[in-house]
Amino acid sequence: PESALGTAADELYNLSRSGRATRRLVQYLIMTGVTQVFSEPTVEVASYVRDRMRLLCHRGGPHCGGSADEQRTPVAAVHVRQGDSCDRHSDTAGPFNSMFAWDAKKGKVDRVGFRYCYSWGVYAAMLRQLQREYGVRTVLLMTDDSTGKVLQQLPKEQGFNWAYLDFPRQQFVKKGWMEFRSDLDENVPFSLAAAFEMLGGADMLVGNMGSHVTRVLYNKMVACSRTSTMPPFISVDGYGLCCDFTEDCSKDDIRKRNRPIRDCIHKYGQCTGGDQYFFHRG
């Protein structure tokens, strides 16, 4: 950095990585601030949210009226992943090593060539856990479910109020990686940006920490938090903030690595093709 502002930003951005902010979340807050800047909605995205947001109210709560106490209850976000990353489906929540399994031929735990997605019942059970612990009444939903089955569950789930975006999702049907397809219309990028904006202000999260979408969403939630604590989250695939995507993520392995919390924050997730860091290594 050549300017005084650039020098200050560089110093602050790398503060905790250098060990000078031990036991602080300074750099995490900076990272979430960066996420917030790069995901600032355009006029078009704001209009997309306004025109396509739908509410299904079953009881008093945020977005749905009711008493003052009901409207002050925390809001949960849920990311129901059902699209191009779904190689197999499961009706039970993932273990801490959901991308690894025992290989009898190799005689060790090794990376598998598939990823799981989880049924609606898994997400609903975790939302009910948040309701018991925090009193959640209203849930903001994002999903790439192409079948419509997820949205069809909402009238039945009358313990919650629901907010979601109304747009054609049929094109999310699995045909390979979304980023390499040329047959998609503007609803794909707009719905993603709009969902980040709509869900980013929630107080807690049910999602898939093995997904970059869930992790970016969580960063926005940290930046928007109304409290001095990290937003609670439950990850259906078993991943958290301290496990790379290509690592064995059992609790024992996480403990053995004894990775500093700074690395858990900065080393955002190791994927095939390279590490993704949120600090300058220069």
Results as ranks from 00 to 15, higher is better:
58 H>Y: 07
173 V>D: 13
51 D>L: 14
69 D>T: 15
91 D>L: 06
163 A>M: 12
183 D>P: 01
87 D>Q: 05
93 A>E: 09
64 C>F: 03
123 Y>L: 00
78 V>P: 00
176 G>M: 09
63 H>T: 14
73 T>M: 06
112 V>A: 01
64 C>T: 11
175 K>R: 15
141 L>W: 03
115 R>A: 14
166 D>T: 10
181 R>S: 11
148 G>W: 05
179 E>G: 14
51 D>M: 15
144 D>N: 13
93 A>G: 04
113 G>S: 10
68 A>R: 15
96 F>A: 14
167 F>D: 04
62 P>Q: 04
62 P>K: 01
115 R>H: 07
99 M>W: 05
73 T>H: 13
65 G>E: 11
77 A>E: 01
108 K>H: 04
155 P>D: 07
173 V>R: 14
90 S>L: 05
157 E>W: 07
97 N>Q: 10
85 S>A: 11
174 K>W: 09
181 R>G: 08
68 A>W: 05
184 L>G: 05
169 R>L: 03
102 W>Y: 13
156 K>H: 10
159 G>N: 10
103 D>Q: 09
89 H>V: 15
57 C>R: 08
117 C>A: 05
132 R>W: 06
182 S>Q: 12
83 G>P: 04
184 L>Y: 09
157 E>Q: 15
149 K>G: 07
161 N>C: 09
168 P>N: 09
91 D>I: 09
145 D>K: 05
129 Q>T: 14
144 D>M: 04
55 L>A: 15
147 T>S: 14
87 D>G: 11
112 V>H: 01
122 V>M: 01
86 C>I: 05
74 P>H: 07
153 Q>S: 09
175 K>E: 15
168 P>C: 04
138 T>H: 01
123 Y>G: 00
63 H>Y: 15
80 V>I: 15
147 T>W: 07
98 S>W: 02
50 R>Q: 14
170 Q>S: 14
78 V>K: 00
88 R>F: 07
154 L>D: 03
155 P>K: 08
159 G>F: 05
110 D>I: 07
67 S>T: 15
149 K>V: 13
178 M>F: 13
88 R>Q: 14
169 R>H: 10
161 N>M: 08
50 R>G: 15
184 L>Q: 07
92 T>F: 12
170 Q>M: 12
58 H>P: 05
153 Q>L: 03
175 K>T: 09
143 T>R: 02
98 S>C: 02
108 K>M: 06
75 V>G: 00
112 V>Y: 00
62 P>L: 05
90 S>P: 03
68 A>V: 12
138 T>L: 02
108 K>G: 06
121 G>W: 05
172 F>Q: 01
64 C>I: 10
76 A>D: 02
80 V>C: 02
91 D>T: 08
78 V>D: 00
168 P>M: 09
50 R>P: 11
87 D>H: 08
178 M>L: 14
68 A>G: 13
155 P>E: 03
52 R>M: 08
165 L>W: 03
113 G>E: 12
114 F>N: 02
160 F>I: 03
132 R>H: 09
181 R>Q: 12
121 G>Y: 04
137 R>Q: 08
116 Y>F: 09
73 T>N: 08
172 F>G: 02
167 F>G: 03
90 S>V: 04
132 R>S: 13
